[in-house]
Computed example of a mutant assay.
Amino acid sequence: MSNMLEDVKTRLKSLGVPISNEPNNQDEILLNFSIVKVTNHINNHTNLSEIPLGLHEIAVDMVVGEFLYTKKSMGALAIETLDFELIAKQVQDGDTNVTFAVDANNTPEAQFNSFIAYLQHNEVDFTRYRVMVW
């Protein structure tokens, strides 16, 4: 889990989201909870005991999405301070295609919600790794 935690922190930093480095702060607690939640979600959908290497980056993005969504829901995230200029207008991953609106009427919150939806992925990514159980 520590490797996942460091990867999540790196991903958040690459998105311009400040994370405190103090141990046992609120961010660290939320990150650890999000990692456990996403790990259990993936394991429940694949029937595996650990996340396959091919789903690691997807899991990292899902944790980031869960973390940001939770912070926003708690009112602990200032969406207006996030820079969405770096986010591409269109992202395609296999058969999944996400387009971010970039017109002048689009609010930072709408951009944030679109980005969170992209980060949280969906279960179609798990299909290759799903194991049948009896």
Rank of each mutant, 00 (worst) to 15 (best):
H41L: 15
I42M: 08
N43M: 07
N44I: 11
N44R: 10
H45W: 08
T46M: 10
N47P: 11
S49C: 05
S49R: 13
E50F: 12
E50C: 15
I51F: 06
I51A: 04
L53H: 07
G54Y: 01
L55W: 06
L55E: 00
L55H: 01
H56E: 11
E57D: 13
I58C: 04
A59L: 06
V60W: 03
D61V: 14
V63M: 06
V63P: 02
V64Y: 00
V64C: 14
E66N: 10
E66Y: 02
F67L: 13
F67P: 06
L68K: 05
Y69R: 14
K71F: 03
S73I: 01
A76H: 10
A76I: 06
L77T: 09
L77H: 05
A78G: 12
I79W: 01
E80D: 13
E80R: 14
T81S: 11
L82H: 02
D83R: 07
D83A: 11
F84S: 06
L86H: 12
K89H: 12
V91A: 10
Q92V: 15
Q92F: 03
D93I: 15
G94T: 09
T96N: 11
N97D: 15
N97Y: 05
F100L: 04
F100S: 00
A101W: 03
A101Q: 11
V102Q: 09
V102H: 08
V102D: 08
V102P: 01
D103H: 05
A104D: 14
A104Q: 15
A104C: 09
A104I: 14
N106V: 15
N106G: 08
P108T: 02
E109I: 12
A110Y: 06
Q111M: 11
F112V: 13
F112M: 14
N113K: 14
F115I: 01
I116S: 01
A117H: 07
L119Y: 02
Q120D: 05
H121T: 09
N122Y: 01
N122K: 03
N122C: 06
E123M: 05
V124P: 00
F126P: 00
F126S: 00
R128Q: 07
R128A: 09
Y129N: 03
R130H: 11
R130C: 14
V131I: 08
